[in-house]
Write a protein that binds this DNA or RNA. Structure first.
Lengths: 140, 140
DNA sequence: TATTGTTATACTCTATAACTATA
DNA sequence: TATAGTTATAGAGTATAACAATA
């Protein structure tokens, strides 16, 4: 078991998420909030339903995530003029700055995590994970 | 963000865990149960406190995990004769068989997950993850 | 008094279901 | 009637705290 990619991805993923979540707390964010910001940064402004579908979470969860992101000024919520049922989420300047800080934190964490690897190995690892991420519909 | 190893390990880890957990359900096991079995298979019979410390979970959780593993006959719980406070957990023949089935499921899942990689790339990925796992005190 | 296992309780995360407003 | 968002409720997973037996 412990030698499988399945086991190693699962355990390392949990460990990385736990430690990175702790650092994210300084920015008043949790991983799913970063997921929303990342999705918004990657595409055009989107509705909550679209984002929920994209992230594979319940629409009701996206309400709570958007509530918080709006409260800290990271996103703006505007009602769609064409279809007044839809709430369109837009990344604010503050949201973009926050996301950039998340990226910096992640890069910092990357450096610590992969510190013992050669630059070549770091590149290989990142590439291989990128292939798997892309194949499984995760952001790239 | 999405290009960092941190983000990719976190998201892929969650995805792999979710999908693998579903298959594990056929064996009436959850990931943490496999963690206990794996720890027991790796070393000598251990107490619940030792295992909880090793896995980084609360002792109270290990009670529930051991309850279930005992109920399905995967482990035996015997009171330590030298220190009657300790419950020593031992892998049974059935537990070993179950763990082997978990390994087979994981290898099967590995094949699907890394199907698009070359054999060389699969080896590289496994090795690199193994290095990170070892450095962070995870089973190898 | 300290430690092992256990039980009771509470907290976090997230989903499902019911509800409101709009289409 | 169907859909976007929201609110209410419930479930899974896990930790903390209180407790019992043994050291």
């Amino acid at each position: 078991m412990p030698a499988t990619v399945t086991f190693r991805l699962g355990t390392l993923g949990a460990l990385v998420t736990e430690r990175f979540t702790a650092r994210l707390a300084d920015l008043d964010l949790k991983p799913k909030h970063v997921g929303v910001l990342t999705a918004l940064a990657a595409g055009p402004p989107a509705s909550q339903q679209e984002l929920a579908g994209l992230m594979g979470v319940a629409p009701s969860l996206l309400v709570a995530l958007a509530d918080h992101l709006e409260a800290i000024g990271a996103i703006a919520r505007t009602r769609d003029a064409g279809d007044r049922r839809r709430m369109v989420l837009t990344l604010t300047a503050r949201g973009r700055k926050l996301l950039a800080k998340c990226g910096a934190l992640a890069q910092e964490f990357d450096a610590e995590l992969t510190g013992s690897l050669t630059a070549d190995q770091r590149g290989q690892l990142s590439d291989l994970l990128g292939v798997l991420a892309a194949e499984n519909g995760l952001p790239t």
